[in-house]
Write a protein that binds this DNA or RNA. Structure first.
Lengths: 356, 356
DNA sequence: GTTTAACTGTAAAACGTTTAACAGCTGCCG
DNA sequence: CGGCAGCTGTTAAACGTTTTACAGTTAAAC
């Protein structure tokens, strides 16, 4: 067995043709006679030849790689994104290089920098803050890129794919209000992150719209375990809200952990709306009512956008905004009359008159 | 802003040196005078130069990439593996190309094939069955590779990193027996997968060792949702076991879903041991007792092995076997007297005499 | 029967690096 | 003061592809 790897040249001599012909057989750029083609393929098989992507890329300038940068490879939301992107990229002949910024801006820059060394055809990035990384700003316009999730939707530098986070927060709070919950706590990861802020704004707006008290946001961080402690501490120092809305899947975990530790039952003592929708949320005695982000659609939209750009589309940058939806399950209990603007103003109006 | 990317040559002319010098500044292969170096670095910065990995790799033959192949990017076990590998690879200057075989042997071969096109420095693979993929067999010896998890530990073709799955199954069942559970069901994903078979063998052996009935294995597949239905159906046709041992994190989900649907309480009606250990398993009113795989160690061992091989180590292939451990929490209830060989034989011997 | 066009195949020049070989310059030893 | 070693920098030749320009062959068109 050969130590070294077969090259075009070796295949060519073995098949008795020029290297250009072999190249044509593999790239399909020019047609080649059927039996020559057969001979080449046979030779290639015998040598178990595989085209060298580095050489190919160097010469052609085309890369067939996309870089995918996410803040955290332990967060299911991001890995499910990657999972779907990998399938689509693969389908279209691209390989995926993953990089994690681990939520550090510095690491993010450095990972992006090395990603660029690949001269990738495109980049899909979930920035770790809502500031677009400097490197991407610099590359905007010459490198196809799509920004996902942690981003202001009308960022002028690149295409974006996000959900309507304001609406997501509002939907959740309206549901809680409908079920009669007036004291709402929000479990946020970090207030510095745009989608989180938007979800909070949406939640707050929905509450005000009905004249309910502003929800109170608790910042618990992006780690489930530590977040659990933080939220548990918060529960210790504050009156128990009637409902909690978790703003990410990790904060959902944090809330659940804190509630379990303090033996506060869901939904008997407190109602809960989870964020994102993963199997573990339904596989419980009390399946969690959740705000589902359409991960498939997000990934799909990001990939389609990137493909367009990679195909040369140079139109102005385009924001895609998708919609989260409420999965109504069992973790929100009916706590009293529906809270409507009327009922909260007039205190005892019949809430049944107001339909959604 | 320049359309094209800066090259070594441009940096060289701008800094007034030869391209070789610039190369030396970046690779550090040969020392270069301090102020020249400064000039080069300045020029590079101004052009925002970044070395082209394709060119570099083509010329040097060194790749600085490792391929990572897993069966499923939606399975937390694999993504947490990837997460850790990415950190270590990055630390050592390697980039990671991920590929998912989606549990299909054909896709696996094709993904590996394209991975090879990168001429990677090494490959870490979790095969989708316990048969080593043909391509890897062919490459064994010339391409550094480490096989993880789904693999027979003494596979002679490559280094392996696994846990002692037999032991893992045994530990779990012994715990169940200690707690007085005699009818044990095993929720397996696929019987065709080596680690699963080993876990079952271990579980069975532990039961026999104490003269208890053989656990019965239920094959529920690798998808949580469908698995839940399968297991629920099984529950419908069979007497309720006293305890269930799930053999993967996904089957844990399946079991939980089925139990929830049938309103069977854990641990009141049935005890449960989960496999793997993820935040959602503890964030419940009844935190799950679990068999924890040491993911950090697995990833660490795989990477260290690969580094060794990439550094040229050509010693015979080496199996690393790590150990799972029982995380005792609340999902296993005491069901009766401890089941020991004596008690099961003599039916009424005092189990309290037998200590662990 | 010559000209054109269409088709297939080939030779050779890139692509942006790394690196072996070499050249110039010090300073030091004999 | 010649020669030699030790630095530091440069020249130029790879690396394995893709691709342009061109050559040869055959078929169609006039």
């Amino acid at each position: 067995m050969n130590r070294k790897r077969a090259t075009l040249k070796e295949v060519a001599t073995r098949a008795g043709v020029s290297i250009a012909t072999v190249s044509n057989v593999f790239s399909g750029r020019k047609p080649v006679n059927a039996d020559l083609k057969a001979k080449v393929e046979k030779a290639a098989r015998e040598l178990s030849y595989q085209v060298d992507r580095a050489a190919s890329q160097l010469r052609s300038g085309r890369a067939q790689v996309v870089g995918v940068l996410v803040p955290d490879l332990d967060d299911t939301f991001f890995t499910s994104l990657i999972s779907r992107l990998e399938v689509m990229a693969r389908r279209d002949g691209f390989d995926v290089i993953v990089a994690s910024s681990r939520d550090e801006r510095e690491l993010e820059e450095s990972r992006l920098q090395t990603l660029l060394g690949w001269r990738p055809s495109g980049i899909i990035a979930v920035p770790c803050s809502d500031k677009v990384p400097a490197i991407l700003k610099r590359e905007a316009g010459r490198l196809p890129m799509v920004l996902v999730d942690r981003v202001i939707a009308d960022s002028p530098v690149a295409d974006t794919v996000t959900i309507d986070n304001f609406e997501a927060g509002a939907i959740a709070v309206r549901h809680l209000l409908d079920m009669g919950h007036a004291e709402i706590a929000l479990a946020a990861s970090h207030l510095g992150i745009a989608p989180i802020r938007d979800r909070i704004r949406g939640a707050t707006a929905a509450a005000r719209e009905r004249g309910a008290r502003d929800p109170v946001a608790v910042e618990v961080g992006a780690n489930a375990e530590r977040g659990g402690e933080v939220f548990s501490d918060w529960l210790g120092c504050n009156p128990l809200p009637s409902a909690v809305l978790a703003l990410t899947n990790v904060t959902t975990l944090a809330v659940l952990a804190a509630l379990a530790r303090r033996r506060i039952d869901v939904p008997e003592k407190v109602s809960l709306i989870a964020f994102d929708d993963y199997p573990w949320m339904s596989a419980r005695k009390t399946p969690l009512t959740a705000i589902r982000q359409p991960v498939d659609e997000i990934a799909g939209a990001a990939w389609e956008r990137l493909k367009l750009r990679m195909a040369g589309d140079a139109s102005p940058s385009h924001p895609t905004i998708l919609h989260a939806s409420l999965q109504d399950r069992a973790s929100v209990r009916r706590a009293g009359p529906r809270i409507t603007a009327a009922s909260s103003k007039e205190a005892a109006a019949d809430p049944a008159l107001d339909t959604t």
